[in-house]
Design a protein around this nucleic acid. Structure first.
Lengths: 127, 127, 127, 127
DNA sequence: GTGGTCTAGACCACG
DNA sequence: GTGGTCTAGACCACA
């Protein structure tokens, strides 16, 4: 399994388990994880990122409660088959809204010209 | 003083005191707060945002330890005269880097096309 | 852990949290605390000295911001591995300079002969 | 009058008014200020050190309450004629005791050899 | 168990 | 009026 599926930043103020849940939400909404896809095991993720297994387990549990994942006995967690997995582009843009608003606010506070920020972001998105 | 200088989101996972410190860092780097400018008093900020004065005080204290602010005994806090206050546009773009990286990662996770995101951000930055 | 690592004087005009930070600075500079050493927990120190846990926490937090300590999530604070931990004798003498200057000034104000003061200090340092 | 009689450190955690009172106590105990000697006016001291006149006034008031100073109408403050002004060397060494203890503790925390500290202090006391 | 954040409120130092 | 220190206690995140 690909334990590097997630990006984890232990120094972030955002709790690790929530970082994982939100990445799951986006990967499923974007279609990179489709219904029935298997997830890396708790131990793999924990080992790879040097975090506590309980933290990963908690993230998976919350994602399950949210209907994103399903627990298959003996096979681990897989992406749930709820039908509304892949979302339209407009819906996915909505999931990005909070981060966009934060970026816009910081740009204004830093008195940065819009085009400089847009150019920098465009270059990032190319690679 | 202008107690609305800061934007505070109590629901954010980022601690309030750190939200304030980071806004201060950006406002000073961007030149919107210049050396010697007086800051709104702890009590004003606390009252305006309905948060505890100690939370604001903690932010001001950390900003002081960081060399961003100076305390004038009995008169309040002012922006420090450290010389490195206003930064070049390139330096300010660097302060935006973490948020840009986060946005780029989320865009990729959501499988969103770059131009849709850039257009949405551009519209936000216009207003 | 050894909660008696610190000496705390609640009656001193120097804030308790700063007393702790400065002792940490000296204990690390002197090598009595080495990189990776675990510190007594906030609750232990607070209980031992009958002070509020938040006061200790504040000291640890400042020491962390200063790069003296590192936080291991869920496991407590340890001395940071920054490389500049143990300092030369000359550097450590520099940390003593402010206290020496204060003592010299007071000696002069009291019109005390140097040798009387030096003899008194020598006897103290023996024990 | 000599407004430079006092040394004032606004950044010290010790309140300024107490810095002044304690210097007065030492200067009188050591005989550098004798009964009847006039003190610099509140305004002179405040102007010279760029501190608030109220702070100086408060120090003088406390020194008066302590019997160190006397207020002479129209002539300002003078050193009181209480007889026990100049103290024996042993008494004066006692006034130095707290600072000596602090220095000894810091020396131990820094793991500094006694002779290095004593030599540094001796050189300071010569000049 | 670890540290962290926030609150409400008392009291201090300084102007 | 300004900021600062400390307390007591609730609640959160993580192991």
């Amino acid at each position: 399994m690909d334990a590097s599926l997630f990006t984890v930043q232990p120094a972030s103020p955002e709790p690790i388990y929530r970082q994982i849940v939100e990445q799951l939400r986006r990967l499923i909404a974007g279609g990179q994880l489709g219904a029935g896809d298997a997830l890396p095991s708790v131990r793999e993720v924990a080992g790879f990122h040097a975090i506590n297994p309980m933290t990963v387990s908690r993230a998976y549990g919350l994602a399950e409660a949210e209907g994103l994942l399903e627990r298959l006995r003996g096979r681990g967690m897989v992406v749930a088959a709820t039908g509304r997995n892949v979302q339209t582009q407009a819906q996915r843009l909505t999931l990005l809204e909070p981060s966009l608003l934060m970026l816009a606010r910081q740009t204004r506070e830093l008195e940065l010209p819009a085009d400089a920020v847009l150019r920098r972001l465009a270059r990032m998105l190319e690679s």
